[in-house]
């Protein structure tokens, strides 16, 4: 076994944690992990602990990096790029901004009132919850390096293309009127010390953990159920190879759900283990993270219904397209 494999198994996949959990389930609870109950308990404990470890480390790392790219600075950078370059930069800068639908309104207003093109703002708003360093590392841990890279690349392409389409449709009149009346937020971001950045990052870990722990437990619970109790043929018929509409179904189910990558991954992992196509699994994850009822309500407060509908439609069609693409080319990735 090479050093790389050991690192991969022990640090990324946390094999040690799986082993400890197995010992606990078999020796303390006296349940073989091959049994349904034993397997479900093992999945539940192992995944919950693993996800919370990942969440703490990744949110800290991301928030620390992100403290160098506050929206004030992002807006300044984006102002320098014209056309498609602006969309690409918007999508890229979105990847280092963490998930939070509550900050999307002020950012939307701040960007548009500063004169940034609507399409660039949307490229940023789509990529921000969809792709980030956390989702990359989580996918790397659970699905391997090829799928992680492919996800990030198509996620960025989706954000760029959706932004360009919105730009080309000339929808500037579809912004709520009051947004235009607000003067451009002109404050510069303050320079922080390394210590202040670390304090900020720890604060983010705490506040995000507090906000999402319940979704993670629900996600792991559903994952454990899929993993151990739902018969293989039911999975095959509903979201598996027997249903040609599996990608569409997975996308539509995922859209209203409100969770981030950490709450979605246990479900995705369990579906993947049950031989559901990787495209179907990724479409589900993208739909959950990119769109949710709360985020749609937020965005509806700054744009008119027509633009909201167009935005949602483009993202849905994009995710379904990506899902089928991944299923067709899955042999290259797994």
């Amino acid at each position: 076994m090479s050093i790389f494999n050991i690192l991969n198994d022990q640090i990324l996949k946390m094999q040690w944690l799986s082993d400890i959990t197995k010992l606990f389930v078999e020796k303390v609870l006296n349940l073989p992990v091959q049994s349904k109950i034993g397997g479900a308990i093992h999945f539940f404990i192992y995944d919950t602990v693993k996800i919370f470890i990942l969440l703490s480390v990744l949110i800290f790392l991301m928030s620390y990096i992100q403290s160098y790219f506050p929206p004030e600075r992002t807006r300044k950078i984006l102002g320098k790029f014209k056309g498609i370059a602006g969309n690409i930069m918007g999508a890229l800068l979105g990847t280092i901004t963490p998930f939070c639908s509550c900050s999307s309104i002020p950012i939307f207003i701040g960007f548009t009132s500063a004169g940034l093109p609507l399409g660039v703002t949307f490229s940023f708003l789509i990529s921000s919850p969809l792709v980030d360093i956390a989702s990359f590392l989580v996918l790397l841990t659970f699905f391997g390096v090829k799928i992680a890279i492919a996800y990030v690349v198509v996620g960025i392409i989706l954000a760029v293309v959706a932004g360009i389409i919105i730009e080309k449709l000339n929808l500037e009149d579809q912004i709520q009127d009051y947004v235009r009346k607000i003067g451009s937020p002109n404050l510069e971001a303050e320079e922080l010390t390394k210590r202040a950045r670390a304090i900020y990052a720890v604060g983010e870990v705490k506040s995000i953990a507090k906000k999402v722990w319940i979704y993670i437990l629900i996600g792991v619970g559903i994952g454990a159920a899929i993993h151990n109790f739902i018969p293989q043929e039911v999975i095959d018929n509903v979201v598996g190879s027997n249903n040609p509409f599996a990608v569409i179904l997975a996308t539509l189910v995922g859209i209203p759900m409100y969770a981030d990558i950490f709450g979605t991954i246990p479900i995705a992992e369990a579906l993947f283990a049950k031989n559901v196509g990787i495209g179907t699994v990724l479409a589900f994850m993208m739909a959950v993270t990119a769109l949710s009822l709360p985020s749609m309500v937020m965005i509806s407060r700054v744009v008119k219904p027509k633009l909201l509908t167009i935005f949602i439609s483009i993202v849905i069609v994009g995710i379904i397209f990506i899902g089928y693409l991944f299923n067709i080319f899955s042999y290259l990735l797994i």
């Binding site: 900050s103 002020p106 207003i109 701040g110 407060r301």
Partner: peptide
């Protein structure tokens, strides 16, 4: 109120 907040030039709360 988000409108009033933004009038202070603030993008992050």
């Amino acid at each position: 109120d988000i409108q009033k907040i933004m009038e202070y030039g603030v993008m992050r709360t």
